[in-house]
């Protein structure tokens, strides 16, 4: 599966269908999808790296915790993250690194305010050779 994500029609909010050849990649691509909606990521490089370690009772809740953690960091530390590496992933723990740039010099890149990632209809599906999940963002 080459494609990282696609948007689908949701009346009030924004829906994305995220793909990943592995669960790790699914988590990375979900984060990419969220920031791709938030801001124009094209050509962003360098400079900030941040490490994350999160726990939750299952993969689905872990995924939302991961997205919400990134979103919180975007709003509080003003960092646009554009690349993600999931280093370790189990059913109840994710360890990851994200690469970003500060918002201040990239203000004109901001597109859509995302309030949160929701749990609505959340289910990670295993296809033959890839994973897929639909996520609704409240915008």
């Amino acid at each position: 599966m080459e494609k990282r994500y696609e948007q689908f029609s949701h009346t009030a909010d924004i829906g994305v269908r995220v793909f990943g050849n592995t669960l790790k990649e699914l988590f990375e691509n979900a984060a990419f999808a969220m920031f791709d909606i938030l801001a124009d990521l094209d050509g962003l490089k360098g400079e900030i790296t941040q490490d994350f370690e999160l726990t939750a009772p299952n993969y689905e809740e872990l995924l939302i915790s991961w997205l919400d953690e990134l979103l919180y960091n975007f709003y509080s530390k003003k960092i646009i993250f554009y690349r993600f590496e999931v280093l370790e992933l189990s059913e109840d723990m994710v360890r990851a690194r994200a690469f970003g740039r500060s918002v201040s010099e990239n203000r004109n890149r901001l597109k859509t305010e995302i309030k949160a990632a929701t749990y609505y209809n959340l289910k990670i599906i295993k296809r033959d050779d890839y994973y897929e999940v639909d996520i609704i963002f409240d915008v």
Partner: peptide, 25 residues
Amino acid sequence: YQVCDDYSKSFIRCLAKYDIDVPDR
């Protein structure tokens, strides 16, 4: 947004605690 986020997350645990069955998290 963050208040809703915090409590949406923690309230998932309440479903089991109070034996509540709802169709969506």
